[in-house]
Design a protein around this nucleic acid. Sequence first.
DNA 1: GCCAACGTTGGC
DNA 2: GCCAACGTTGGC
Length: 156
Amino acid sequence: MNYWLFKTEPGCFSFEDLKNRPDSTEPWDGVRNFQARNFLRDTAQVGDRVLFYHSNIPEPAVVGLAEIARAGYPDSTARNPHGEHFDPKASLENPIWYMVDVRYSEPLRKIVTLERIKQNPLLVDMPLVKRSRLSIQPVTENEWRIILTMAGVDGP
DNA sequence: GCCAACGTTGGC
DNA sequence: GCCAACGTTGGC
């Protein structure tokens, strides 16, 4: 069981969008960073918990909870030459890029803004604070608990 | 819209 | 295998 933070631009795909999926799951595709890819391919497991984070907006924040519904599998968008995530080097034998499925879990009573995260001395080691560009980030159990407390959610 | 951070690419 | 150039991310 692992904890994660997944970043998305809400104008592209938001927590509400995930909630409104008919089965509440969505392939998390288009990740094109090797470190993030490795997390998706090698570590993410069904049942892992996910902090859903909205980036690139005036008030970036963790806005909800999700979970991994399917572990890493080849990202087929890499082989679609008409899509924006096309990678000519990807093939069936060597997919290069991977995705997972995420499932909507629950909203937060109160969103946890990046500003509040930065102000909390217990959270300064989060990649979000130090390496903000990584789009798939591991979260420790302790960080998970702290953020859920800040969000007004009971228990991990 | 600016720009710092930083990951990736490609020439050598 | 180094490193400069380049492209992208994302906070502000």
